[in-house]
């Protein structure tokens, strides 16, 4: 490996590290973010290789190759387990959030459908409030719940739905659909709370530290493989960087189930609104 113009590699190394941080903190669309993350990681590890090898020369590494392989195998296994654990956790939380949204939307659709068994004024009130709630969830709350929390008006529309049922006179409460409707209302409320909670969930900082440290350690271990051919080592380190970057990207994009392009959308609510019956105003 040639070590002249080492400062070029320093500049490239620091620059790509800074760009990686910028890409991670910027809210880019999924595919450009993935492409940049992988590309910059490959650049970073390739810029870091001559710097590492400048410090520890090949002759020394070839002598200690067996011990290093064993350590790399341990680090690799532990890191793979950690990544698998993180991916399973975020994936489960993502699919739970998806099912919570579906349950909330289904309960709303049921409630609206059951309101047809009540008197026309009740039906009109339920339909008005249900439509308002769904529309606000779709148009306002979905955008804001990740960073600014629940929408006060969506909460108000749900309270209004409750009011329709709690304020009913004794005669209306005798309707056989009353109890089931209140159950559905409870489902909406519970699932809404779960949805809002899920929108705020994050992978714990300690897991992120482990993911980053594990990735860096794995790459550093490959730097010190006693490989004679320069290009072979570059390929090895690049492949590892791609795998680590993709793992981090996967965890990051599933971390917030409602954020970004891969986030869960309000499609379930859109379909409910589309199927709501219009009562004559």
């Amino acid at each position: 490996m040639k070590y002249h113009r080492l400062w070029h590699h320093w500049v490239l190394f620091v620059g790509s590290a800074a760009a990686l941080i910028a890409v991670k903190s910027a809210e880019l669309p999924t595919w450009p973010a993935c492409f940049l993350l992988v590309g910059l990681s490959v650049l970073l590890v390739n810029a870091g290789l001559p710097l590492a090898r400048y410090c520890v020369r090949n002759l020394f590494l070839e002598r200690n190759s067996a011990a290093q392989n064993a350590v790399f195998a341990v680090i690799g296994t532990v890191y793979a387990t950690l990544v698998a654990f993180a991916v399973v956790v975020v994936w489960e939380s993502y699919s739970d959030a998806e099912s919570t949204v579906a349950q909330e939307a289904n309960a709303l659709a049921d409630l609206e459908r059951m309101s047809r068994g009540f008197s026309v004024p009740v039906r009109r009130q339920v339909q008005e409030a249900a439509r308002t709630y769904a529309t606000l969830v779709i148009k306002v709350e979905w955008q804001r719940m990740n960073d600014r929390g629940p929408d006060p008006r969506a909460h108000a529309a749900l309270t209004e739905l409750w009011t329709v049922y709690t304020d009913m006179g004794p005669k209306l409460k005798e309707n056989p659909l009353y109890e089931t409707s209140v159950e559905r209302l409870n489902e909406i409320d519970d699932n809404r709370r779960l949805r809002l909670l899920a929108s705020q969930t994050e992978v714990p900082a300690v897991v992120w530290v482990m993911l980053y440290c594990g990735g860096v350690l794995s790459v550093v271990m490959v730097y010190f493989f006693g490989v004679r051919r320069d290009w072979v080592q570059r390929i090895l380190v690049s492949v590892l960087a791609v795998i680590v970057a993709l793992s981090v990207f996967l965890v990051a994009s599933l971390e917030k189930p409602f954020a970004g392009d891969s986030g869960i959308g309000p499609d379930a609510f859109v379909s409910v609104v589309a199927n709501m019956q219009n009562l004559e105003l």
Binding site: P121, R124, Q125, E128, A129, T132, P152, R153, H155, A156, A157, T159, E160, E280, L281
Partner: peptide, 16 residues
């Protein structure tokens, strides 16, 4: 009231 209330200019008790 617990929350702000949605304005309903046409009361639901009758048709518009």
């Amino acid at each position: 009231s617990e929350t702000v209330i949605h304005p309903v200019p046409y009361s639901p008790y009758r048709r518009r």
